[in-house]
Computed example of a mutant assay.
Amino acid sequence: MYEQILQVAESFFMQQGYHGTSTRQIADALGIKQPNIYYHFKGKEAIYFEVMVTLSQEVSVNLWRIAEDPALTLAEKIYEMFAFLKRRHPVNFYMMMNDIQHSVSKDTSFKLYLLWKENYQKPIVTLFESSDTKIRGGVSAEFATSQLFILLAAHLDVNQQTHDQMAPAIDLFLHGLINETPEA
C-alpha cells in the first residue's frame, strides 16, 4: 500500500501542487479510508517528501546517464536532460519551487533543497565543469545551471506546447544573443 500511496500522491502533487492536494483525495483515488494513509505516513508533508525523494532519485539516475553519454555534444546533453524532465516530471516547476519554499516546514524545505541540489543541479553543474566546451570566465557552473533552469522552466510546463522551442532556447543560452561575427 505504501508504494500505491506514493504513486497516486505523485500524480496529484504534480498536477495540483501541494496545496491543491489532500490526503482525502489520495485515499479516495485508492479506494481506502483516510486513516489507512496515516498508518504509513505522518501526514501530507511526509507523503510529499517521500514522493520528491523517489522522483529525485529517478531524475538523478537519468540526468547522470545523459551527462556521461560520450556520443552527445554539450548542447545535445542539455537538450536530452530537459526533454527527459519534460517527459518524466509533469509539473509546473514554478509551482513546485513555490511549494518547496512556502508550503512545507522549514526542515522539510531544507531537505528538499538538498535533494534538488544533489539530484537535479549537480549533474548539470558537473557537465559544465567537465565539458570540453568551457563556460566563459567569471561565470560559475552553479550560476550557469541556475540560470539554465530559470530559462527552461517554462519549457518544462507540460500544459504549454514549447517542446519545439527548447533547442533554440538552449542554443541561445549557450551561444548568446549577440552576433560577434562581422557581417559581410
Results as ranks from 00 to 15, higher is better:
Met1Thr: 12
Tyr2Gln: 13
Tyr2Cys: 02
Tyr2Leu: 05
Gln4Lys: 15
Glu10Ala: 13
Glu10Lys: 15
Ser11Gln: 14
Ser11Leu: 11
Phe13Ile: 06
Phe13Tyr: 15
Gln16Gly: 03
Gln16Tyr: 11
Gly17His: 09
Tyr18Gln: 02
Gly20Ile: 01
Arg24Val: 03
Gln25Tyr: 03
Ala27Thr: 01
Asp28Thr: 12
Ile32Asn: 04
Ile32Lys: 12
Lys33Gly: 12
Gln34Phe: 00
Pro35Leu: 00
Pro35Glu: 00
Asn36His: 14
Ile37Glu: 00
Tyr39Val: 13
Tyr39Phe: 14
Ile47Thr: 06
Tyr48Gln: 02
Phe49Leu: 14
Phe49Val: 04
Glu50Asn: 14
Val51Trp: 08
Met52Trp: 08
Thr54Leu: 11
Leu55Pro: 04
Ser56His: 15
Val59His: 07
Ser60Thr: 03
Val61His: 07
Asn62Met: 09
Trp64Ala: 00
Ala67Pro: 09
Ala67Phe: 04
Thr73Gln: 09
Leu74Cys: 09
Lys77Val: 05
Lys77Leu: 01
Ile78Glu: 02
Met81Asp: 03
Ala83Gly: 04
Leu85Thr: 07
Arg87Phe: 06
Tyr94Arg: 13
Met96Thr: 07
Met96His: 11
Asp99Gln: 09
Asp99Trp: 05
Asp99Leu: 03
His102Pro: 03
Ser105Met: 03
Lys106Met: 01
Asp107Leu: 11
Ser109Asn: 13
Phe110Glu: 10
Leu112Thr: 07
Tyr113Phe: 14
Trp116Met: 12
Lys117Asn: 02
Asn119Pro: 08
Val125Ser: 05
Leu127Phe: 07
Phe128Ser: 09
Phe128Tyr: 15
Phe128Arg: 11
Glu129Asn: 15
Glu129Pro: 08
Ser131Ala: 15
Ser131Lys: 09
Ser131Tyr: 04
Asp132Ala: 15
Thr133Gly: 03
Ile135Asn: 11
Gly137Pro: 05
Ser140Gly: 13
Ala144Asn: 06
Gln147Ser: 12
Phe149Gln: 02
Leu152Cys: 08
Leu156Tyr: 05
Leu156Glu: 00
Asn159Cys: 06
Gln161Arg: 10
His163Leu: 11
Met166Gly: 04
Ala169Gly: 07
Ile170Ala: 02
Ile170Gly: 01
Asp171Thr: 14
His175Met: 02
Leu177Met: 10
Ile178Phe: 08
Ile178Ser: 05
Asn179Leu: 04
Glu180Asp: 12
Thr181Asn: 13
Ala184Tyr: 07
